[in-house]
Design a protein around this nucleic acid. Structure first.
Lengths: 226, 226
DNA sequence: CGCCCGTTTGAAATAATTCAACACCGGTGG
DNA sequence: CCACCGGTGTTGAATTATTTCAAACGGGCG
């Protein structure tokens, strides 16, 4: 819980808001900026590459997520962050954040919580890619997206998928072609419906079961306090 | 860099050392202790389960790693930590650690760095499992183990593999059977040699190339300061 | 209008799994 | 001291999930 002083400090933070087009880089591997970006609107993702050109999306960010808290403490980024859609981000100077963190223990641990939840999510993705078949993997990702976006803005279960099938594949360790087939399978079985890029979760319980989805790893309650 | 006061604080920390047999739990999913464990000796790993019984090892810990820094800020663990071998761990009370972190910004950011490196490592594992074939995956894990253990105690390239082939499989998203075959393949091609559980890296450059291994993700330099 | 990116579909190829049997080894108890 | 035991490693053959390659389609955009 934040005390009043902490709240005040947060609200007087000097931030610079900027709009960013889709598919542009917010962070590049190896390059460290002097500011942290906070996602206000839109979606972005972290990615890493293998030498053979293989790509892995290793996490998604939705509005309310920090883009690169890691750059505050590490001076070389180990991955890229790229926007998925048009985004609005708030930049905060490293110096300000550092000051904030040392002066307000509550904010410090709040940031810790944010970082730890992200780590937890990456672990769940590792389980997903390593130990679930394509159908469950895809279903799991769909469940995560709905859960995380509705936690932000009480959305219903229809949303336009912000990702291409190729990107979905890279997030799941699958081929775009296979993603397509699995997507159709889920549709055929009445778990989801699609119209162009728009996806509707038709049967949430069924999808969750198919996905082996349990939202514990998202630490929704802990996140609320930040 | 730590100042003298921080060093002093660290050295007067009340720690309780205990020995733990192999294959015992250090942390259980859902259960939060009031202390953080630091690994002094031995190896341990984090694991998560899918409902169908599938297991994923999501990280390894070597001497010098924190077992559960996450429990300091999150009150419910989202995974287990289990010892791989006989271990010696140091327990530190949460209260002490919290005080340390709020009083010494340098220690705070040191802990951040540790957490962030671990997150980076998990992302690399995700790339490994999602986008590399079995041979590269296994080679990559072998490279990581050598690199991390030699960073601790300037070891040479022979070491007894602390893991069963089943555990290797769970760390790589593969079957134990397949791990066995791939291991033999690496041996046949002269990249490694084996005698019982003992593994020798015969040709490091070749293994690294086969693994697509680049140690940047381990942030070895940043780690040194902690 | 035409182009390009993303999607859809099929057929063939392949990596990895599954199942099953057997060998090995260290440890335990008779 | 030997026999047995369970866990681990090894091997082969059959099966399956996923990839690869290739071609065609569709729609949004300049």
């Amino acid at each position: 819980m934040l005390d009043d002083a902490a709240r005040a400090a947060l609200s007087t933070l000097a931030i610079e808001v900027r709009a960013v087009p889709a598919a542009s880089y917010l962070v590049r591997e190896g390059q460290p900026p002097r500011r942290c970006a906070f996602l206000l609107e839109g979606y972005s993702y972290r990615q890493k590459f293998a030498v053979d050109g293989g790509r892995a999306l290793v996490s998604l960010q939705v509005p309310g997520d920090f883009i690169d808290l890691s750059n505050l403490f590490l001076d070389e980024s180990d991955h890229d962050v790229q926007t998925l859609t048009y985004c609005v981000v708030a930049d905060i100077a490293h110096a300000d954040l550092r000051a904030l963190v040392t002066e307000h223990p509550a904010i410090n641990s709040g940031f810790w919580v944010i970082g730890l939840i992200e780590a937890s999510t990456t672990r769940e993705w590792l389980l997903n890619v390593g130990r679930r078949d394509a159908r469950a993997r895809l279903a799991h990702l769909l469940c995560e997206i709905t859960t995380r976006t509705e936690a932000v803005d009480g959305r219903d279960d229809t949303y336009t998928l912000p990702m291409t099938q190729e990107q979905l594949g890279d997030a799941l360790g699958l081929t775009a072609v296979h993603v397509n087939r699995v997507l159709k399978g889920l549709e055929r079985d009445g778990l989801i419906a699609r119209r162009k890029r728009e996806v509707t979760i038709v049967d949430i319980p069924l999808l969750r079961r198919a996905a082996d989805f349990n939202d514990r790893y998202l630490h929704l309650d802990a996140r609320a306090s930040a």
